[in-house]
């Protein structure tokens, strides 16, 4: 039976493929619009980063996704390893000319791709905010005045500076994670444990 592995599209795709290659697992690149590629031992699925945990929860054996997405989706799966790429942070962001402390954001409208994380974060601080789910270009929300602040990924900070935004407070550190389906962990116990151990050893040696 082939191992089914879901690879995230976007910024985590290349480092994921490189890591697997170092483990001796070659991931052939899909041609054209193909979303599934098979080798002798593996079936690779290429999915949107936000959907990776959902695929793994529902039966795909393994996958790689950012911890932000894993936290947002809150899926029932195993997360045996943190991977040394895709590092950034999820933060509260505001326009540079209207900065206030997070504690003063009661009643604010917050635009984000992460409504669950944002809701939990502000509720945890006892703040009643309105969460507005957007699917991308969240930076536009304060510019168009549809939201006073946003919750989004901060990497180098260049996008923020280019749009006159500043990071007000970090919510969580983000990095890529290896995900394992709970049932696959049991039914393919030896194979998955060996893969995790080899990956772990590789990361320890710093050759990722």
């Amino acid at each position: 039976m082939k191992t089914r592995f879901v690879i995230p599209e976007g910024r985590l795709k290349d480092p994921s493929i490189r890591l697997l290659k170092r483990l001796g697992v070659d991931v052939p690149l899909p041609s054209g619009r193909e979303l599934v590629v098979e080798t002798e031992d593996y079936i690779f699925f290429f999915a949107k980063p936000f959907d990776v945990p959902v695929y793994v929860e529902h039966g795909i054996d393994l996958g790689i996704a950012g911890s932000d997405v894993v936290e947002e989706r809150n899926c029932d799966l195993f997360i045996p390893l943190e991977l040394p790429f895709g590092r950034c942070r999820l933060s509260v962001i505001m326009p540079g000319d209207h900065v206030v402390k997070v504690e003063e954001m009661d009643g604010f409208r917050i635009a984000t791709k992460y409504p669950n994380i944002a809701s939990r974060y502000f509720a945890g601080k006892g703040l009643d905010v309105e969460i507005m789910k957007l699917h991308g270009t969240v930076e536009l929300a304060p510019k168009t005045r549809i939201a006073e602040a946003l919750v989004d990924i901060v990497d180098t900070g260049r996008t923020l500076r280019a749009n006159g935004l500043v990071e007000v407070e970090k919510i969580m550190d983000v990095s890529a994670m290896l995900l394992v389906n709970r049932i696959a962990q049991k039914t393919r116990f030896t194979m998955i444990n060996e893969l995790v151990m080899r990956m772990k050893q590789l990361l320890k040696e710093g050759t990722s």
């Binding site: 929860e57 529902h58 039966g59 795909i60 389906n181 709970r182 049932i183 696959a184 049991k186 039914t187």
Partner: peptide
């Protein structure tokens, strides 16, 4: 309780 036929417990 689980089965190799389905990805959920």
């Amino acid at each position: 309780v689980y089965s190799s036929n389905v990805g959920h417990p």
